[in-house]
Design a protein around this nucleic acid. Structure first.
Lengths: 194, 194, 194, 194
DNA sequence: AATGAATGAGCTTTCATTCAT
DNA sequence: TATGAATGAAAGCTCATTCAT
């Protein structure tokens, strides 16, 4: 029941933050929509910011678990990267609200100093950079500043998500998100051909 | 003197917003740092948001002027795009605070509905998309969803800027930003080769 | 077991109130330190104030029992008063936390209306006044406003306790408290010599 | 006008704190009774506690100024002390609410650490102790632990004020306060006769 | 045009108390 | 009897905005 309630608050907060933005969302509103009292929120979260932190934390852990499951995977780097992007875009397809928040509130000043947010923002590109490193070593791609290219890829992913989110036509939006992994991997791997 | 004061407030606000984020910046603070009284701010701006709007407006106009100056330029698309990215990265090198705000406050809910912010956020990628369109027509690159690719490029630019900003070594940071226009154009044009 | 638990809560509350002050002590904290749940507190006490009331009640009863034991004691008033002050100072030496609370929370608005607190705050001086009355009748001291003098003596006791508590050197502190009963009685009886 | 408003808030707060106690007084209530808005309070005071601090500060400064004016006064110590007590009791006669607060909120945990409160609670007795020291040197009183006696006198003063404040009959109350200085000085000086 | 004291709606947060288990 | 999650009234405080000077 406990974990349930925290989860219930998290999910409601995602909806509310996505609709209004963190700073225009009130704890009263979250409580009301979650069907609990304000006090209950504070039984599970230190303060309002902690809710946002938790949302990020959950998402980060999903990505990390995925990376962990890739350990020892012998398929070509291109394949692994495609898989990761598929997972990422699929997560956003499943919960567009989370995507909205991840993009919108990422630059939230207090968040930027939090360990797991730093890990998310730096950690994910670092893992991508490590994959690119392997691809360079395997001569699948030409030598390059892998950290910079990884950052570019990470940014490109964000840009495509943003572009997709702007579409009011849901079918169109989903189409972009669904095709994105292959297109981006193709674009980057062809762009990096030796 | 008038225009001067509005400019003075805009510049101070850039500094304050960049340091703290829009929502954690107070009008009192801006007034104090600008050496004017709060009341004066309201003689030049409808409200606090209007200051942010104005900051975006000024930046947007700079980009638009650059695009206007490109009108009729007959050089290859690749050349034009490189020039634009050079200008953009140079602007960020010159005023990192503005870059910070453009990235951070872009997703500000009330801003997203404002015409010239929409123009900035959509307009810049749209211009890039238009250039890509021309390149496709000229068979310099393969057919693609130009809007999505433009968004990816725009995002990649942002990602590289962010990566550069993380470096504590200034020389290294500047080196990345200086090389970035060519590298990104090369990456994308090779990636889009027919 | 019952009486035990109530006692356990009372003792913990004394520690907590003394350390933080009544208003900055939470029921959660008391429960935690007492090793019971908040709910349990409310099985023994009507509300938070009732805990404070009970603390006062227990202390008052101790004083009253002492007075009762003095009934019929034929020794000179000066002797009786000295004994009472000895008992009082000893009680504070034994439980400085209780002394702290008795002094600090005495002026608590809701407490001031409670019968047994009124009895404590007025009752102790009244008993002193009664003893002084007897001394006046016996011509051991000159006629005076006994209520006012009793209040002065009661206040003086408090002042000396406070002064003693300020000393960081424990030996010094204890020395003051040990000598205090005689010194105060001497001071006041000499001051009231006929 | 500025100083006026701070003064206006201070005076209202004295009335409100005296009637209800600090912890049961709300900033809204003070604002309402002072005829200003809550925001205005916070233009003059850091927070609610700062109002209480200021009340203490003003009273302490009055006492200190009085002591300063005594510098170089050649009259006998007994006379000086009587004068000081007269001033003190007169101040309480003039503003019984202040007296109430001085006694009730003195033990307020956050106040106890403030420099000027420490100065008040320790400083006033120290000045008294210094006067007693002079009286001992001049053989007007017998040798004694002047610090302890000063604490006792300070406490006795408080006790008498408290006793007076308990009287519902104002005439009676004022009578006690008016007679107190002479009575206490007589009591103590006779009690300390060599 | 410039000022800055005054405003008060509105927010986050706390915590004594309850009650279903 | 004991529990402790849930409650929600109530409080302190902030800060964008106004307007008399």
């Amino acid at each position: 029941m406990q974990a349930n309630k925290k989860e219930q608050i998290r999910e409601t907060a995602i909806r509310v933050f996505a609709a209004r933005g963190f700073h225009y969302s009130t704890t009263d509103r979250i409580a009301e929509e979650a069907g609990v009292s304000v006090g209950t929120i504070y039984n599970y979260f230190r303060n309002k910011e902690a809710i946002l932190e938790y949302i990020f934390q959950v998402e980060l852990e999903k990505r990390q678990q995925f990376f962990a499951s890739l350990e020892g995977d012998q398929r070509p780097v291109r394949q692994l990267l495609t898989d990761f992007l598929r997972m990422h875009f699929q997560a956003i397809l499943d919960h567009p609200d989370v995507g909205q928040i991840l993009i919108r509130e990422r630059h939230f000043p207090q968040l930027e100093t939090l360990d797991f947010v730093v890990q998310f923002i730096q950690g994910v590109p670092q893992t991508i950079a490590a994959l690119l490193e392997k691809a360079v070593a395997g001569k699948q791609i030409r030598p390059c500043q892998t950290a910079v290219v990884a950052a570019a890829l990470f940014g490109a992913v964000e840009g495509v998500v943003r572009e997709a989110m702007l579409r009011s036509d849901h079918a169109e939006r989903d189409a972009i998100l669904r095709r994105a992994p292959e297109e981006l991997v193709t674009l980057f791997f062809q762009g990096l051909e030796p």
